[in-house]
Design a protein around this nucleic acid. Sequence first.
DNA 1: AACTGAATTGAACTTAACTCAGGTTGATCT
DNA 2: AGATCAACCTGAGTTAAGTTCAATTCAGTT
Lengths: 206, 206
Amino acid sequence: MTRIVEPEAGPRSKRAAILTAAVDCFGEAGFEATKWSTVAERVGIGQTALYHYFESKTHCLLTIMRLELERSHDRFVEATKDVEEPVEALRAAVRAAYVVSPHEVLQMRILQNHMDLLSGTRKSKREEAERVAARQLVQVVERDWTNLLVKGMSQGSFPLRDAQLLGGSVLGLIVSVWRWYRPSGPTPLSEISELIEGACVRMVAS
Amino acid sequence: MTRIVEPEAGPRSKRAAILTAAVDCFGEAGFEATKWSTVAERVGIGQTALYHYFESKTHCLLTIMRLELERSHDRFVEATKDVEEPVEALRAAVRAAYVVSPHEVLQMRILQNHMDLLSGTRKSKREEAERVAARQLVQVVERDWTNLLVKGMSQGSFPLRDAQLLGGSVLGLIVSVWRWYRPSGPTPLSEISELIEGACVRMVAS
DNA sequence: AACTGAATTGAACTTAACTCAGGTTGATCT
DNA sequence: AGATCAACCTGAGTTAAGTTCAATTCAGTT
């Protein structure tokens, strides 16, 4: 459990700018489809300068994924911390999952589209560190949901079922949205949020 | 709606063998992580021979995805054709989605992990043809599920809800399994199938 | 002014996908 | 059997994109 320390930003560090540009590119065009050099251009530096901040294109991707996972976990905790009643906690958690900026939508999409990267080990040190951290965070987030269900089951609010499997399914249902959702699309996020919220409650509580 | 004609197999065609090998490689190691030349090796031909059958590595991937989508659709139709009662039809459809060989599990995984490929247009003709065909099949499969729900709603078996959105969500829930499921893992597919079947019924029918 | 480390660069390297021009195989026809 | 033709295959070479590296600039510190 080695925690990754965010490199403290020197005053003229472009790390944040690179991450932002990369999220835009990877999110809109896809990771494979975007040239690493394009990200450099957008930031306004030569391609090789990127390697001062990231070991590789993939290292940058993994960092984006880890940051998104940290964000998801934080939001979950924040949204559920004061809610005792299990059904309300579940509702709050689902709603919180859909309170996101367009930029965060892109991050979600990137995360979902490259989950498979977290399976196999990486060759270089820092890449592998990010991968392991992200993998761990996936488990943390899964545990967030599982714990919520376990609590509700032991309190008698939810019927007893395999909490791990059901928690993973709820999570899978929620994040499946990010594969197809587009802010510019016909369905507003509020509508999606409501439908999924109801679906999750029925899945878990009836 | 230009249908793709499967190239009829000459007696010494290695196309099928390539597809099989590619599914194994792409499914186990991931598409990006597997070298195209490795697929050639496994089949027992030189790398350049691959280009006799597929225009590119991506063209092969898209073909695999299209074939998997065709399979999914066929299975859905087969499983539901004789079932009148909506709840039973839903149950049958979900169960059918999880009656799969290990090889088919890999195909599902590949399909899910590269859905994003279907968004942007491709440069070369045959690739683009496969992409469009696959994209269309995604809509066909989505319509399969939506129609099932619409029928159930109009018969009064399911409460009225946005059938399109709910259908997509059910589908998303079902296929989310293929991101993490491993035949060698601790959870048997039968258990998953039962839990998801119940979850879908509650989502849709209560 | 000299020093230091972060930030940057142009040129060269590496790898894997892909192209090409031509060669082999084997089913089919006469 | 021998000729034919399309399907099938290959080695050598090209290309594109990610990556490495040695050398340089820049901003702040002593």
